[in-house]
C-alpha cells in the first residue's frame, strides 16, 4: 500500500471538470504517470500524477479541498 502526496499547496480536485467523473475510481489500475487529480495553485491548474503503480484504493481527501504540500491525496493497494 502506498500514498500519492500533493506536490504543492493548493486546492485538490478529483475531476477534470465538475461535470466529469473522477480521474480514478476504486479498483482502477494505476500506472506510473497516470493522472489522479488536479491541484489549483494561484489560479493555475497542475496535474497530479502517480509516481508509483498499483490499484486505486480511494481518495484521501474530499473533492475541492484545500491541501498542504505533502498532504496524502490518494492511496493505492
Amino acid at each position: 500500500m502506498s500514498d500519492i502526496q500533493s506536490p504543492l499547496p493548493g486546492t485538490f480536485y478529483h475531476k477534470p471538470s465538475p461535470e466529469e467523473p473522477p480521474f480514478k475510481a476504486p479498483g482502477d489500475a494505476v500506472a506510473i504517470g497516470d493522472q489522479i487529480g488536479l491541484i489549483e495553485v494561484m489560479k493555475t491548474f497542475i496535474a497530479v500524477t502517480a509516481d508509483i503503480a498499483g490499484t486505486f484504493k480511494g481518495y484521501s481527501v474530499d473533492d475541492a479541498t484545500p491541501v498542504t504540500a505533502g498532504a496524502v491525496l490518494a492511496e493505492l493497494d
Binding site: 504543492l8 499547496p9 493548493g10 486546492t11 495553485v41 494561484m42 489560479k43 484545500p66
Partner: peptide, 12 residues
C-alpha cells in the same frame, strides 16, 4: 512580511 506563508488560493 517575514515569516508570511503566501496562500496558494489566490492570484500570484
Amino acid at each position: 512580511s517575514e515569516g508570511y506563508q503566501i496562500p496558494p488560493f489566490y492570484d500570484s
